[in-house]
Design a protein around this nucleic acid. Structure first.
Length: 228
DNA sequence: GCGACAG
DNA sequence: ATCTTGTCGC
């Protein structure tokens, strides 16, 4: 069922593949309902650009209790340079590897970065969702090239994230008086549902527990891979 | 041409 | 992403 991933030889090929794959995005709401019994995985990567090594982590949490259910990591060579708009080609190989090492596939994947909020409407979270078939959402820490009005100060407040006049995501306040996160849809999840998931996962801190756990794990995995 | 630009 | 100490605040 999952589609294969291979590293493009050129940026033009990378862009062309995005235009093809984006047709496979399913913009429905067939993923789990926020806060209901389900498993949610956070994925993240860390780099050692000097040695050209990337380490990825996938951590599965219980969506109700937020307890960690499973952890997996993967390391490998950095496969693609960083280019805004092509982040997925840099992160996906290691992330897909880590996800595949989980004994049980999650019901939802939370990515660091964007989903449909992307110059070609096919960011990392959408790409991951299409390849794996899993419901996915993107959670970014900055607005990238998009614009927004600051949401009200209370937790849960949001404002549209705009590419011109098109709403591509939401600036979502997960903690009172703290900088908002930028949430966008990936695959099989609706924008309001995606925001509800993020609020459910970010009860105490700005970032969802899924990304906090994945961030910690990929860093330790990187130092372990870098430490002979 | 210059600046901006997820991680 | 990553380089990096102390420091202001709850």
């Amino acid at each position: 069922m999952p589609l294969p991933h291979t590293t493009p030889a050129t940026e033009a090929e990378a862009v062309a593949r995005q235009l093809t794959l984006r047709e496979h995005i399913v913009p429905d709401d067939t993923g789990p309902a926020p806060g209901t019994p389900a498993t949610v995985a956070g994925v993240d990567v860390a780099y050692d650009d000097v040695r050209g090594i990337v380490a990825a982590a996938a951590v599965t949490l219980d969506a109700v209790t937020l307890e960690v259910r499973e952890r997996a990591t993967a390391t490998g060579p950095v496969p693609f340079p960083y280019r805004p708009g092509l982040l997925a080609y840099r992160e996906l190989p290691a992330v897909l590897d880590a996800l595949g090492r989980l004994a049980t596939a999650p019901d939802l994947v939370v990515c660091d970065g964007y989903g449909i909020a992307h110059p070609r409407r096919f960011g990392l979270a959408a790409h991951l969702g299409v390849l794996t078939g899993l419901p996915s959402i993107g959670v970014a820490k900055n607005p990238f090239t998009f614009h927004h009005q600051p949401p009200a100060a209370e937790r849960g407040a949001w404002s549209p994230l705009l590419d011109g006049t098109e709403e591509v995501g939401r600036a979502l306040r997960t903690q009172p008086g703290v900088k908002p996160l930028f949430v966008s849809t990936g695959h099989r999840v609706t924008l309001p549902t995606a925001c509800a998931h993020v609020l459910n996962l970010a009860r105490r801190y700005r970032l969802p527990e899924t990304t906090r756990e994945a961030d910690r794990l990929c860093r330790t995995a990187l130092s372990a891979a870098t430490r002979p």
